[in-house]
Amino acid sequence: MSSYHEVLNEALSLPPDEQLRLISELLADVRHRVIPKPQHSITELRGLGKEIWNGIDAQEYVDQERASWNG
């Protein structure tokens, strides 16, 4: 018999409260090892592309955009 089946049978023989504890601890361990942590933060994008807006008046830009909505 494989070790998986041996462990499964052993787990199934535990009382329900211990089965729940086992499941919880296994999930926590697997999540820690399997789910990768983000390698970047959204804050790294701060200021990205700001040179595109250099010299452009924000209010003038908004006014032009709004005017274009009317066709």
Rank of each mutant, 00 (worst) to 15 (best):
L14I: 05
N9M: 10
L27W: 07
E6V: 08
Y4G: 09
R46S: 10
E18M: 07
Q19D: 03
Y4S: 08
L12E: 12
L22S: 02
D57I: 03
E60N: 07
R33F: 03
G47E: 01
Q64F: 11
E60T: 07
S41A: 01
E65S: 08
D17W: 02
H40V: 15
E10L: 14
R33Y: 04
A11K: 02
G47W: 06
A11R: 00
K37V: 04
A58K: 13
P36A: 11
E65R: 10
E44D: 11
L12G: 12
L8S: 12
G47Q: 03
N70C: 09
E10A: 14
E51C: 02
D63L: 06
N9F: 07
L12S: 11
R21D: 11
K37A: 12
D29R: 08
S3H: 15
D17S: 05
N9P: 06
L48Q: 10
I56P: 02
D63Q: 03
P16G: 02
E51H: 01
G71N: 09
K50D: 15
E60Y: 00
G49V: 02
M1H: 06
E25R: 12
Q64M: 12
Q39M: 04
V30W: 02
E10R: 10
P36M: 04
L22Y: 00
G71L: 12
E51Q: 04
G47P: 02
I42M: 08
N54H: 12
R66M: 15
W53T: 14
E51N: 06
Y4L: 08
Y61T: 11
Y4D: 11
E60H: 08
A28L: 10
Q39H: 05
E18D: 05
W53C: 13
A67P: 07
W69G: 09
R66S: 11
L20C: 04
L48Y: 03
W69T: 08
A11I: 00
R66Y: 09
K50A: 15
L12M: 15
I42K: 06
L27V: 15
S2R: 03
I56E: 01
D17K: 03
I42C: 09
P38M: 01
L45I: 09
Q64W: 09
N9T: 05
V7N: 14
S68G: 10
L48D: 10
I56D: 00
S13H: 03
I23K: 04
P15G: 13
V30N: 06
S3C: 15
E10N: 13
L12D: 11
E65Y: 13
D63P: 00
G47N: 02
A58R: 11
M1L: 08
L20G: 04
L12V: 06
V7S: 14
Q39C: 05
I35Q: 07
W53D: 14
E25D: 15
E65G: 14
H40M: 11
L20R: 07
R21W: 03
E51K: 05
L14F: 05
L22C: 01
P16S: 05
E44N: 04
H5M: 14
K37H: 07
E6H: 13
I35V: 12
V34T: 09
A11H: 00
S68Y: 05
D17L: 00
R33E: 06
S3R: 15
K50R: 11
P36V: 03
W53N: 15
H32M: 12
V34H: 01
Q39I: 07
L48W: 00
L12P: 05
P36D: 07
P16V: 00
Q59M: 04
G49Y: 00
G49F: 01
R66N: 14
